[in-house]
């Protein structure tokens, strides 16, 4: 396996191999908690933290763990970090902790995390695993926040409501509202809204990819034509 550049790792994590929108991993928390942007951000950051820490740890111990027992070991590593994150959120972000509820301990079962441990961290050096964990986690967080913002905007007509849960009282002013006349579409907040929203998000990503590859193809064609002109 040829080593990818750090730049490529970051682009893969954020876009090309986005765990939520391309690999479609970790959909359970993705669909369940994204009814507001702040909830999405909270769970996204918790997942990012666990993913980075577990990637680094798995990479450190990769040469001592026998392949036969690697999966249980990965699960124990991930579970320890999730427990730590859960306890810290209980201590410092209690309100958010109550809203996210069962989905924080459920980060253990997020297949995106064990997927990265198995597919990347167990085969790569520590520094590369760290970058991969950060990039993949950020990509997942980005998808959670985008979906959460979409659903919150459609369903309640606000954006970043309850920002104070995460950033303290000073952030209460971050909340953007479309005004009281906006009648929220309740369906967007309910589970069907999550599925529809994710579907549209993936469609949008595919559309952008298609446009990009079209313009890239056009650019290479243009370049080829230019060289032909120059040589001919």
């Amino acid at each position: 396996m040829s080593a990818q550049s750090y730049r490529q790792l970051v682009i893969d994590g954020l876009w090309n191999n986005n765990q939520a929108m391309v690999a479609l991993l970790g959909l359970c928390p993705l669909l369940a908690v994204t009814n507001t942007a702040i909830n999405g951000l909270g769970l996204g950051l918790a997942t990012l933290l666990v993913l980075t820490l577990s990637n680094v740890t798995v990479s450190i111990i990769r040469n001592w763990v026998r392949p036969e027992v690697r999966l249980p070991v990965f699960v124990i590593v991930i579970a320890s970090f999730v427990t730590a994150v859960e306890l810290s959120m209980n201590a410092w972000f209690y309100e958010l902790y109550k809203i996210l509820g069962i989905f924080i301990p459920l980060i253990v079962t997020n297949c995106a995390i064990i997927g990265r441990a198995e597919a990347f961290a167990s085969k790569n050096a520590i520094s590369r695993s760290l970058v991969d964990g950060l990039a993949m986690g950020s990509g997942f967080t980005l998808a959670l926040v985008t979906l959460g913002a979409m659903r919150e905007l459609l369903g309640m007509g606000t954006l970043f409501s309850q920002a104070n849960l995460m950033f303290g009282e000073a952030a209460g002013g971050l909340t953007i509202s479309l005004g009281d006349d906006f009648k929220g579409m309740l369906l967007a907040i309910l589970p069907p809204g999550a599925f529809l929203g994710l579907g549209f998000l993936i469609a949008l990503k595919n559309l952008i990819d298609k446009r990009l590859s079209h313009s890239r193809k056009a650019a290479t064609h243009q370049a080829a034509a230019n060289t032909e002109l120059a040589t001919g």
Binding site: K183, G184, M185, L186, L187, A188, L190, P192
Partner: peptide, 8 residues
Amino acid sequence: VLLLVSYP
């Protein structure tokens, strides 16, 4: 049903 669920 979309409307019934969203705007009861």
